[in-house]
Simulated scan of single mutants.
Amino acid sequence: MSGSRESVQAQERLDELRRRLYRDGAGEEDLRRYAEVRDSIIRLEHPGTGAQVADAPAPDAAPPIRARRPRRVTIRVAAFALAPLLVVGVGVGVAAAASPARPHTAITPTPTPHPATTAAPQDIGDGQTIVQQASVVAAPAAESVSIDGTVAQAQQFEGVGDAWVPLDVSSAGFSGGRGVVVLSSSAVSPIDWRTLRLATRRDWTSYQEVIAQGTVLAGSPVPSPVLFSYSGAPPTHLAIGAPRGLRWTLLVVFLGSTRPAKR
Rank of each mutant, 00 (worst) to 15 (best):
M1N: 13
R5V: 12
E6Q: 05
S7K: 09
S7F: 15
D15N: 14
E16W: 06
E16F: 15
R18P: 05
R20G: 05
A26L: 03
G27H: 11
E29Y: 12
E29D: 12
R33E: 09
R33T: 12
A35H: 09
V37W: 01
R38C: 10
R38N: 06
R38T: 02
S40R: 15
I41E: 00
I42M: 15
R43H: 09
H46N: 08
H46V: 15
P47V: 04
G48F: 03
G48A: 07
G50H: 05
G50F: 02
Q52M: 12
D55P: 06
A58K: 15
A61H: 12
A61Q: 10
A62F: 06
A62E: 11
A62T: 13
A62Q: 13
I65C: 15
A67I: 14
P70S: 02
A79Q: 11
F80Q: 15
A81W: 09
A83C: 12
V87S: 00
V88G: 11
V88L: 07
V88R: 07
G89M: 11
V90W: 14
V90E: 13
V92Y: 09
G93D: 05
A96F: 14
A97D: 13
A97W: 00
S99C: 14
I107K: 05
P109M: 07
P111H: 01
T112R: 06
P113H: 01
P113N: 04
H114Q: 15
P115A: 13
P115S: 00
P115F: 13
P115W: 12
T117K: 14
T118H: 15
A120C: 01
A120N: 00
A120W: 02
A120V: 14
G125P: 04
Q128L: 02
V131F: 05
Q133L: 03
A139E: 06
E143K: 01
S146I: 12
S146A: 15
G149C: 01
T150H: 14
T150Q: 12
A152W: 08
Q153L: 13
V160N: 07
W164V: 10
P166W: 03
P166G: 09
S170G: 06
G173C: 01
F174L: 14
S175R: 10
S175F: 09
V180Q: 06
V180K: 01
S186D: 09
A187Q: 04
V188C: 04
V188K: 10
S189H: 07
W193E: 01
R201P: 02
R202W: 15
T205F: 01
E209M: 04
V210L: 08
A212Y: 11
G214V: 03
T215L: 15
T215R: 11
V216G: 02
A218D: 01
G219H: 00
P225G: 01
L227W: 08
F228K: 00
S229Y: 02
S231V: 15
P235S: 11
P235I: 03
P235V: 07
T236V: 01
H237Y: 09
L238N: 10
L238T: 00
G245F: 07
G245C: 02
R247K: 04
T249Q: 11
L250M: 08
L251N: 03
L251Q: 00
V253P: 01
F254Y: 11
L255Q: 02
G256D: 06
G256V: 03
S257A: 03
T258I: 15
T258A: 05
P260D: 01
A261C: 05
R263K: 08
